[in-house]
Design a protein around this nucleic acid. Structure first.
Lengths: 344, 344
DNA sequence: TGGACGCAAGGTATCGGTAACATCCCAGTT
DNA sequence: AACTGGGATGTTACCGATACCTTGCGTCCA
C-alpha cells in the first residue's frame, strides 16, 4: 500500500513532483535552510514520508565538494583482538565526528595493502589509517595521494612525513625484563619477532637495555627470533629449556610467543618464570603465574583517529608529522585459588 | 618536483588537457575500452601518471547508476572476538567480490542501530548485514528501504522477510548438556542469558531437551538468568554452588558466563564440572577441564555475505527469505601437563 | 568515382544533488 | 499609482564521471 515505485529509488525530483514544488525547495527543506516557509516545509516532508525518500549522500558529496565522510582503515588482521580493538577505537572517534569507517584487511600482504589504499583513495575517503604490513611505505605518501591525510598505527613511517601512533615497545620490554631481574633471574631467554620487524627490534632493544642496566651480560645464545608459524614459539622455547645451562626465565616478545612459551614450560614441568609483551586475556585462570606488558589498544585507534581528524577538519593542519606513544603497564597474572581435581 | 597542483585533486578534464585529448578518450582508456588506439592510450596513461590521477569512484558510480561497491556491517560490539571474526568473514567475501565493508558499532543501542542503518542507506551501500541489538526490526525492512537487501546474523528476523544466518544454539546446548549427563551428572545448574534474548531462549531449550531426553527432571531452581554486568555470572554461580544440594555441574550459555562460572568453581574449590556455549581460547592452559560448544564464527560472516551478494548481484534473487544454520562442535579442553610450582 | 562501412575520437546530455543567480510577490513607502 | 525591498521560490549550471550519438577519415567494392 505504500506509494513507492518498486524497482527504483526515488530522487529529489520525485519528491518535488509529489509535493508540486521545485527540487530546490526540497533540497533546502532537507538541509534545514530557514528560508523555507512552514507550510512548504510541511508539504515537502509529507512527500518525503510518502515516498520514503532518502537523500543520496554520494551525489550530495559530489556537488558540495565536501568530504565523503569516510575514514579508511587498513589493518593486517582483523580477527586479532588487538586490531579489532584498535578498529573499535577508530570507529568510536569517527562516529563521534559523524563519519563512517571503511575497513580493509591485508592479511599482511603488501600487494593487497597497496590495492586497498588505492581503492580507498579512489573512493575519496577523507583519510586513511594504516597498520603497514611491510617496510615499503611509498604507496602511503600523502604527496602521491594529493594530500590525502595518512596516519600509521603500531609502526613508524619509513621515508614518509606522516603522523603515527606507536606503543612504547622499548619501555615495556625494559620494564618486564627488569621485573624478571628483580625476581632474581640472571639468565633470561628472549623469544623475539622477525629480525626485520621494527616492533621486534624495539622490544629486543628494551630487553637488552634492562639487562645492561642491571649489569648482566647479554648472551647472544639466549636471544632467538621466532618464525610466525603456529607452534614455532613452543619449539624454540623447548630448545632453550633443554640446554645444558637453561635460562631460568623466558621473555616473549608478543602474545603468540608467550602462549607458546607457556606450553613449553608446562610440558617440560620446568620451573622457569615467564613474562611477555601483549596481554593474554584470562591468564589468571592459568595454572602458573605470568607477567605481561599490556597497553590500551583502543587508545591506539582513538589517538590515530584523532590525529587524522585534526588534519581533515582542522583549520590549519599541523605543519610537521607527529608521533604519539602509548604507554604500557606491567600486569601480573597470578593463579586464582587452588585448582580442583581434574574431572572428565 | 611532481607536476601535481597542490590543493586540488586532478579530474579527468585535467588529464585530458594535459594529454591534449578529450575527456571521453581518458574515460575510455581507463575503462579499458578497446576502441582506443595504442598511441592514444599511451599518451593518456602518461598524463595520468604525470598528474598521479585517480578516478573518482563516487562520480563514476553516480553516472553508471551502478552500486557504490560498499557493504554495510552493523554489529553490536566489534571488540568481542566473535564479532570481529564475523567481520573478517564478511570482509573476505566482500573483497573477493571487489567490494568494501563499512562498519558500524552499535554497542547494543537500538537507537544507534537505527541511525547507522539510515546513514548507510543514505550512503547507498549495496546491502546491509546486521546483528540486531533489540527485538524491534521495523527499521530493517527492505520494503521500507526501497529494496535494499538486508541479512541478519546471529538472530532471526522478527516480522521481516529477510535472509538470516544463525548458529545452531539449540543443538549445541543439547549436545553439551548431554555430554555432562553422560559423565554422570544429574543436577546441572544453567547460567542463562537475558530472558528476552532469542539466542538465550534457544540455548535454554536445548539444555532442557537434553535433560528430558535423559529422563531427568528440569529443576527450575537451577535455571538462572544472568545479567550482562561483569561479575554477575560469578555471583550467580557462587550462589548455585552454595545451595544445600548444589549442582554437580554447571552449563553456561555464553562465553562470559563460562568464565564467571570457572572463577566461582576455582574460588570455592568445588569439584563441579563445567561446560559452556562459545569457545574460550587457551582453555587448555587452565588448571581444570571444561567442555565448550564451538562454531566457526568466520563462517557466519562469510555465509551472511554470500547470501547478501546473491541478492545484490544475482540475476534473479531468491523469492523467499532463507535461513542458514551454522553447526556446532563440542570441544573438550583438558589441562596441559602438570602445572609447575607457582613462582612470583 | 561514389558511397557504404568500420574505426577512432569528440560532443552532448545526464546521474542526483546544490551553489549562485534570477524571479516573484506583496507589504511598506513617497 | 509607481517604487522599493526583502523574503520565498524557481532556473541554470555544474560537481566528475559515462551512455549515447555524431563526426571525420580511410578503405574497399561496384
Amino acid at each position: 500500500m505504500s506509494s513507492t515505485v518498486p524497482g527504483r529509488t526515488p530522487t529529489m525530483r520525485d519528491v518535488a513532483a509529489h509535493a508540486a514544488v521545485s527540487p530546490m525547495t526540497v533540497s533546502r527543506t532537507l538541509r534545514g535552510d530557514p528560508r523555507v516557509s512552514p507550510e512548504m516545509r510541511e508539504r515537502v516532508l509529507a512527500a518525503v514520508e510518502a515516498l520514503r525518500y532518502r537523500r543520496n549522500d554520494l551525489a550530495r558529496g559530489l556537488r558540495t565538494g565536501r568530504s565523503s565522510g569516510l575514514l579508511g582503515l587498513v589493518i593486517t588482521n582483523l580477527s586479532n583482538p588487538f586490531y579489532s580493538e584498535l578498529a573499535l577505537g577508530v570507529e568510536s572517534i569517527a562516529s563521534a565526528a559523524g563519519m563512517r569507517v571503511v575497513i580493509g584487511n591485508t592479511g599482511g600482504d603488501l600487494e593487497r595493502e597497496r590495492l586497498l589504499v588505492d581503492d580507498m583513495a579512489s573512493r575519496r575517503v577523507d583519510g586513511i589509517i594504516v597498520v603497514p604490513a611491510g617496510h615499503d611505505h611509498s604507496h602511503l605518501d600523502p604527496d602521491a595521494l594529493h594530500g590525502l591525510p595518512v596516519v600509521l598505527a603500531t609502526r613508524p613511517p619509513s621515508g614518509l612525513d606522516v603522523d603515527c601512533v606507536v606503543v612504547d615497545d622499548f619501555g615495556g620490554s625494559r620494564r618486564a625484563t627488569a621485573a624478571l631481574v628483580a625476581q632474581g633471574h640472571r639468565r633470561i631467554g628472549f623469544l623475539g619477532l622477525g629480525r626485520s620487524v621494527w616492533t621486534g627490534a624495539e622490544r629486543l632493544r628494551g630487553h637488552c637495555a634492562a639487562l645492561e642496566e642491571a649489569g648482566l651480560p647479554v648472551d647472544d645464545a639466549l636471544l632467538r627470533s621466532v618464525p610466525a608459524d603456529p607452534g614455532a614459539a613452543e619449539a624454540v622455547a623447548l630448545e632453550l629449556l633443554s640446554r645444558d645451562d637453561p635460562p631460568t626465565a623466558l621473555f616473549a616478545a608478543n602474545n603468540r610467543n608467550t602462549v607458546g612459551a607457556y606450553r613449553a614450560i608446562a610440558e617440560t614441568g620446568s620451573a622457569a618464570a615467564l613474562a611477555g609483551f601483549d596481554d593474554v586475556p584470562l591468564a589468571d585462570l592459568f595454572a602458573a603465574p605470568i607477567d605481561v606488558v599490556t597497553y590500551d589498544t583502543g587508545e591506539v585507534g582513538r589517538r590515530a583517529a584523532e590525529l587524522l581528524l585534526e588534519r581533515i577538519e582542522g583549520e590549519e593542519p599541523p605543519a610537521h608529522p607527529r608521533l604519539v606513544t602509548i604507554g604500557t603497564t606491567l600486569k601480573r597474572y597470578r593463579p586464582l585459588g587452588a585448582p580442583h581435581p581434574s574431572g572428565g
